[in-house]
Simulated assay, not measured.
Amino acid sequence: MNLIVNHSSMWPIYDQIADQVKDQIMHGKLAAGEALPSVRTLAKELKVSALTVKKAYDTLEAEGFIHTVHGKGSFVAFADQSLMLEEKKKEVEADLEMAIRKGRSCGMSDEEIAQLFQIVLED
């Protein structure tokens, strides 16, 4: 599993890890049933605290992307397509919110943003 952590980012490291693992699962780079590195192994590879990796794994488990078997490790959960689709929709929503904030920050009205959205949507 190839993960990159930006230690100087304002974005929490556990979120960086969780989001990259989710992305790899959704794009088929990690298959259902595949074992993830142990918390300690991944923490050592990424040069972060084991608690940080544990928090990322706990987040992934809570969202249904992985499951953990005590004493055996963490594994990619069987892909629930509706869960993955919902996660993609959340990403699109977040991207649209960011675009709207950018538009407003440079003085665009909501009507101008909506018109621009329609133009881009038609392309």
Rank of each mutant, 00 (worst) to 15 (best):
H7V: 06
H7R: 12
S8A: 13
Y14I: 00
Y14L: 06
D15K: 08
D15A: 07
D15Y: 10
Q16H: 06
Q16Y: 07
Q16V: 04
Q16N: 05
A18T: 02
D19M: 12
Q20W: 08
V21P: 01
K22V: 01
D23S: 13
I25V: 15
M26T: 01
G28P: 05
K29T: 00
K29A: 11
L30A: 01
G33V: 05
G33L: 11
E34I: 02
A35I: 07
L36S: 03
L36P: 00
V39T: 10
V39D: 02
R40E: 10
R40L: 14
T41H: 13
A43I: 05
A43E: 11
K44L: 14
E45T: 02
L46S: 06
L46V: 01
V48I: 15
S49V: 06
L51N: 09
T52Q: 08
K54Y: 11
K54V: 01
K55G: 00
A56D: 09
Y57G: 01
T59M: 15
L60Y: 05
E61T: 03
A62C: 06
E63H: 06
G64K: 04
G64T: 02
G64P: 02
G64L: 10
I66E: 13
T68G: 02
V69D: 03
V69Q: 11
H70M: 13
H70V: 13
K72I: 01
G73W: 12
G73H: 09
F75V: 02
V76H: 01
V76R: 03
V76Q: 04
A77L: 06
A77D: 04
F78L: 07
F78Q: 05
D80C: 04
D80E: 14
M84Q: 08
M84A: 04
L85I: 03
L85G: 00
L85H: 02
E87K: 04
E87I: 01
K88I: 10
K90G: 04
K90F: 09
A94M: 12
A94Y: 08
A94Q: 09
D95A: 14
D95L: 15
D95M: 14
E97T: 02
E97S: 11
M98F: 11
M98N: 03
I100P: 01
I100N: 03
K102T: 00
G103R: 11
S105Q: 13
C106A: 11
C106F: 15
G107Y: 13
S109I: 07
S109H: 06
D110M: 15
E111R: 11
E112G: 06
A114K: 14
Q115A: 11
Q115S: 06
F117K: 05
I119R: 14
I119H: 11
V120L: 15
